[in-house]
Design a protein around this nucleic acid. Structure first.
Lengths: 142, 142
DNA sequence: CTTGACCTTAACCTTACTGGAAGGTTTAGT
DNA sequence: ACTAAACCTTCCAGTAAGGTTAAGGTCAAG
């Protein structure tokens, strides 16, 4: 298999495959003309890279997963732990994105959204960020 | 205000402030010794940048928000639309991350997680990804 | 007079690629 | 045999949003 076929087979771009090779994540044989050649074991590795990337693993994490794939004395517990750790990371991200989303919705709710220039959103975002839910008010004895 | 104070006041790093200036997102006056000087209007812009970044706006989107902040004939509807568009983007991301998370949990469920090398996760990830729930079948009339 | 805390610019590192330049190879068609 | 399309090769540059380090100027205190 040449790189273009390998790309179509795995859903990666040829560019990405060369990039992964430059990082030592996969190897390729070479034909006499210099073209890269991929066998079924290489295609397996590329599939792992493609799919692991799609579910959120970084290339360094993929490097570890590929090493496990090629290690016949691996423990499946190590693979599982890596996956569950990634789930925990995604959960953190989800919490963060949800907070951002809710903040934006609260801001949008307080904005008229008309032809006028007064805008609660801009007022809020451009003022000092206390991070507080309540506003400080001046004392009577100032 | 010097850049360090401005940084502490807004929660940005001095480095980021210089970077934003290099992109033309904010301006600064200069003292005789070359130090940057920030007035309250500049601090407002920096606050907008800091907080807009935190809720997910890109620097290019921030550029637009700053231009609205400085445009007295703006329409608050434009600000609101930008915010709601960002909410929609975050919603897309949330869907995507949630799918990734669920895929990973399904994979983890099918893995023993023991000392042995057999691992449903690696098997799944390294095999061809149809990504399909249904398989394409050839037409009778070709 | 020196130390420490500031400030300045410039240049490189990061992640995970994508695009393009400049050129070699193969294949199909005429 | 010639040519054009469709492959392939390497290398260089750029993206977002800064962080890090280097090398040096400025300023206040002790």
């Amino acid at each position: 298999m040449k790189i273009g076929e390998a790309a179509r087979a795995t859903g990666l771009s040829a560019k990405s495959i060369r990039y992964y090779e430059s990082l030592g994540l996969v190897q390729s044989l070479r034909r006499d003309n210099g073209y890269r050649e991929y066998d079924s074991a290489a295609i397996q590795e590329l599939n792992l890279l493609a799919r692991a990337r799609r579910v959120g693993f970084s290339l360094e994490e993929c490097r570890y997963l590929v090493s496990l794939l090629n290690n016949q004395s691996r423990h499946s517990a190590d693979v599982k732990q890596q996956v569950l750790q990634k789930v925990a990371q995604l959960d953190e991200q989800l919490v963060h994105l949800t907070q951002m989303r809710n903040t934006l919705l609260e801001l949008a709710d307080r904005c008229q959204g008309d032809e006028g220039p007064e805008c609660a959103i801009l007022q809020d975002l451009s003022s000092a960020n206390t991070g507080m839910r309540f506003t400080l008010v001046e004392d009577e004895n100032g």
